[in-house]
Design a protein around this nucleic acid. Sequence first.
DNA 1: TAAAAATACTCCATAGGTATTTTAT
DNA 2: ATAAAATACCTATGGAGTATTTTTA
Lengths: 113, 113
Amino acid sequence: MELSDLKIFTAVVQEGGITRAAERLNRVQSNVTTRVRQLEDRLQTKLFDRQGKRLILTPAGRTLLDYADRLLALADEAEAALQEKTPRGLFRLGSRESTAAVRLPGPLSVFAQ
Amino acid sequence: MELSDLKIFTAVVQEGGITRAAERLNRVQSNVTTRVRQLEDRLQTKLFDRQGKRLILTPAGRTLLDYADRLLALADEAEAALQEKTPRGLFRLGSRESTAAVRLPGPLSVFAQ
DNA sequence: TAAAAATACTCCATAGGTATTTTAT
DNA sequence: ATAAAATACCTATGGAGTATTTTTA
């Protein structure tokens, strides 16, 4: 199961159909159809009940949808965190005691809080 | 960014090297090398500092690791939830008032709580 | 010099596209 | 008759492997 599978799956649910989902995803209808089926195969779970055209979420589909939303949101958050230009992480600084006392308080006060 | 990328990334961190990660993943060393580099390219972020053999996590890598762990755990949880054989979801049941009063309390008590 | 990462290449699986058919409004 | 999903088939991207080279401990 990949994030791209979940992106396609949620698009189908949100758009209420494969064709419209494909349009939004800038993909082709047959591709979306196939990806959804493959996802169902891999998970060994039916995600939609096909009543002709209508695609209706199964309870399992509903369950997956909840997780998919959370996973995609978390993935977005991760990517955003990495784009942060603000320096992060541990910063070690060494100096002589005398220098530290005189020189460091000013510059370091920038990072207070 | 796909879950398989994150699986590879975390394996490299946990095993402390590409070769050992490759072994654990039943993949080949060059493949793991490439996947890690591609991930860095896509995210436009260096995840490791290469000091010769040694791979050392950058702060950004550290950040991604946290998210990766959460994402993979959540994905596992999702798959597990779908394998649950216990029926889930909304269950609608119609009956005549008289039937309901006499016939339903017994069977339905199974689902109490 | 031994062990690990990087590089260059080859191959194949599969994702994505085109065209058509089926199905249900 | 229309619109959407399924199916069959083709193409090509990129993931995975083999072999080799580079690097540093």
